[in-house]
Amino acid sequence: MINMTNTILVIILLSVLLSLASNRLSALVRIMALQGVMVSLTPLFLEHHSNLGSGGLIFFQIMILIKGLLIPGLLFMAVRKVSITREIEPLIGYHASLFFGLVCILLSGYITSRLQVSLPAGHELLLITAITTLAAGLFLMMGRTKAITQVIGYLMLENGIYLIGTALTKQSHTLYVVEFGVLLDLLVGVMIMGIILHNINHAFDDVDTTLMRRLKD
């Protein structure tokens, strides 16, 4: 089982690095779909989650559907609609971003080793992945100009937080509320962002957030 978990986690890490290096939006969305599926799968392979009831299984299926299909689908439609295919001028270049991702992994490892928390065996990598994903999400939001990329960054941030949640907490006292919350949040959040995205494109003829600097002092 542990090998399985680790495999998934490595895939997630890879997807993070890829997303940092990718300049094509459609590729980015595909990566996010993959990452979403993997993130939703992670809890299933963890030891203390193994005794899932049937309700739990259904829940995770829905989760995979949403994270792996619905949201990427929405994003895909958005990308099509705004008809831009690539991030042209990132605020931080791709090589630098990739380098940042690597540094992030290193730092996450350091932090994980420093945190005085008794993690179950094999969870170190989970925590490393989680923190890296979270940091990379924030990084994408800061380092890219296109509004869609920022939405994707936000998704990654949520993925990271979700992973941290699964890594650190016992399932017993949350009663799926956490997952439910994250899902709802993601869903509605992305839908709203999608609507705004659409309107931004409509109003500004672009989804470049550098154009949105009217409101300042």
Binding site: L138, M141, M142, R144, Q150, T209, R213, K216, D217
Partner: peptide
Amino acid sequence: LRWIQHGHIQLYIGYII
């Protein structure tokens, strides 16, 4: 200091971080 509110959303997120 009014520069703080410069309009760049990317840096706003940077403030939080």
